[in-house]
């Protein structure tokens, strides 16, 4: 129990550091224009460990924070907070089911969560800019994969689903 708390705290610290690095050196952590969403990982980990009210507030605040420090377009202030709030609400509602999952099933569900987030975000962000199929393979899948890879590394160092199966 104590170990779990310590792991959670360390993963929070790591995520904060990654987020700050991302904010300052956004162009450096990107690969061919693809950037991971550290805040999304942060929110998923929060959803697993914290009270739902706290998580939904965090989802909104993180979304706003992302739109302010990672601006991409003048037209999409509020898009991150909208999609993050919606996604985290659905995730919180499905949490009892997610918490019963282990190993591959758990990670597939996390990949699915990230995929849905990027799909919704990119469909709105790139509407009129690229065709849906292009949005899927050029942006959604690579961004999901990159973000999931960081999530996977973090969950390998600080296991998440052990705690979810208490």
């Amino acid at each position: 129990m104590e170990n779990n708390k310590k792991n959670t705290l360390i993963s929070y610290i790591v995520l904060v550091i990654l987020f700050v690095i991302g904010m300052i050196f956004n162009d450096f952590i990107g690969i061919a224009g693809i950037h991971p969403d550290i805040l999304l990982i942060f929110l998923i980990i929060l959803a697993m460990n914290e009270r739902p009210v706290f998580v939904i507030i965090a989802a909104f605040v993180f979304g706003i924070l992302q739109d302010i420090v990672y601006p991409g377009s003048l037209h999409f202030w509020g898009l991150s907070s909208l999609i993050k709030t919606l996604l985290i609400y659905v995730l919180l509602k499905m949490l009892p089911l997610v918490r019963r999952m282990r190993g591959v099933a758990f990670h597939v569900s996390m990949f699915g969560t990230m995929f849905v987030y990027y799909l919704l975000y990119n469909l709105l962000y790139y509407s009129g800019f690229a065709k849906p199929f292009v949005i899927l393979y050029r942006y959604t899948l690579p961004e999901t994969a990159y973000t999931f890879l960081i999530f996977l590394v973090l969950s390998a160092i600080f296991p998440l689903y052990q705690k979810t199966n208490r």
């Binding site: 009210v53 939904i56 709030t85 919606l86």
Partner: peptide, 17 residues
């Protein structure tokens, strides 16, 4: 309370959009 908060946040986000 969770649903109410979600609706408020979505409303603010839509206003910002």
């Amino acid at each position: 309370h969770l649903e109410i908060l979600t609706v408020i946040f979505i409303g603010i986000s839509l206003f910002l959009l």
